[in-house]
Amino acid sequence: MLTVEPDASSPEPHYLPADMLETADAAAVTEDLIATAAHQWLVYVDVEENGQLVDTLTGELGAPDHVDWDTKANTESQPVEGMRHADSVEYRDPWTPLYFLPADQLAESGLRMRPLAEGDVETRDRC
């Protein structure tokens, strides 16, 4: 488990993000593939504060523009037709796992660096 997201933008990074790797037959690295060799991988959990609006009863995702925010903290008020009551939703922090392979384990992993797309080269040059 990593406590800081590794910098993968250097010319020789110590950790390689899964999205920069591919299998020998050019397939994407999936969570299932990572699970088969979990001992080789490190994970960083990216937390986006208040990144998702969810229904407090069902946990289903909602959209802020479908909520009548004028009803907040007023259980007696009715939302505008077609809208939700503000007290029926809450913001939560989504957690997204980001997987990294130590660079010194690339050869034994059977994976390879994926070719960079044109946009990737421009992005990497700016880093």
Rank of each mutant, 00 (worst) to 15 (best):
Y44T: 02
H14L: 14
D55T: 11
V29T: 05
G59K: 00
D68M: 09
E48A: 07
A28C: 01
L101Q: 03
S10T: 15
P64T: 09
A18W: 01
L116Q: 14
L33F: 11
A18R: 02
I34N: 02
L61G: 12
N50W: 03
L16G: 03
A86C: 06
P6A: 05
E90N: 09
H66L: 11
N74C: 04
V54Q: 10
S77K: 15
A27I: 00
L42E: 12
Q52L: 15
Q40R: 15
V47F: 02
E76T: 13
G51P: 06
A8P: 06
H85L: 07
P79N: 07
T23P: 07
D7N: 15
I34L: 05
V47Q: 12
Q105V: 00
L98A: 09
P102R: 04
P64A: 12
V80S: 14
A8Q: 04
A8G: 05
W69G: 05
L116Y: 10
I34C: 01
D104P: 03
M1R: 08
D120W: 11
L106D: 07
D25Y: 00
L42V: 07
L33G: 10
V67I: 14
M113S: 03
T56D: 10
L57H: 11
F100R: 06
V29F: 06
V80P: 02
V29P: 09
A8D: 14
W69L: 04
R112V: 08
G59H: 04
T30G: 08
A27M: 13
E90L: 08
R112W: 01
S10L: 11
G62N: 12
H14F: 05
V43R: 07
N74V: 06
V80C: 08
A103W: 05
